[in-house]
Design a protein around this nucleic acid. Structure first.
Length: 180
DNA sequence: CATATGATGGACT
DNA sequence: GTCCATCATATGG
């Protein structure tokens, strides 16, 4: 049984967490069955200084959720998809990491994209504001000992206004990354 | 209530 | 690469 990640892992800067989340295991329990995936692609989002972040638009609930304690699960609906984020940083900091792609480990499926992985793991609005430590349905574990060959840093995808910093991270040559 | 917009995905050239 | 269906949110009245 792999070690479950604790709050101190998520209580750091979103960029650091996004990077270190690669290779970790996103676990899901559905009807008593365990589904494990390897996180292969993430993006970091920040507060008002980040024009692509929902927190920069003076939102209500989403901005508030981003300021909740680290490890809070934030589910955001866009187009016809659910996108899952983990709140990071210290309380009041409005930071989050978007999970963009996962690789199924003990089952078959397609987690090659932020909308696809939420369908795959049946993550939806009912998980909004749950957290990774109390939930018996969703959590993150240490990786299965598999070494990461190389981490690639790129600009974020699908955002109209990005910041001049590379905030997208993925595992090089992994077949489950959503896009080159 | 009306309207605009997008952290998408899939189909197509 | 381009186009667009589709719907959760944000914002204005």
């Amino acid at each position: 049984m792999a070690k479950k990640l604790k709050k101190d892992f998520f209580s750091r800067n979103a960029k650091v967490v996004a990077r270190e989340l690669l290779g970790k295991s996103l676990a899901r329990k559905i009807n008593g069955k365990f589904y494990k995936t390897r996180i292969v692609e993430t993006e970091a989002y920040f507060d008002e200084k980040d024009p692509a972040s929902k927190a920069s638009r003076g939102n209500g609930d989403l901005k508030k959720t981003m300021k909740m304690p680290a490890g809070t699960i934030l589910v955001y609906g866009v187009h016809n998809n659910w996108l899952v984020n983990f709140v990071t940083g210290r309380k009041g900091k409005a930071e989050a990491v978007l999970i963009r792609a996962v690789e199924p480990l003990n089952f078959n499926g397609n987690g090659k994209g932020p909308g696809l992985l939420t369908r795959l793991l049946k993550i939806n609005k009912k998980h909004h504001k749950e957290n990774l430590f109390n939930s018996s349905e969703i959590w993150v574990e240490e990786g299965n000992g598999t070494k990461i060959i190389e981490i690639v840093e790129k600009y974020r995808i699908g955002v109209s206004k990005d910041i001049p910093e590379k905030m997208r991270f993925y595992i090089k040559d992994n077949k489950h990354v959503s896009r080159k």
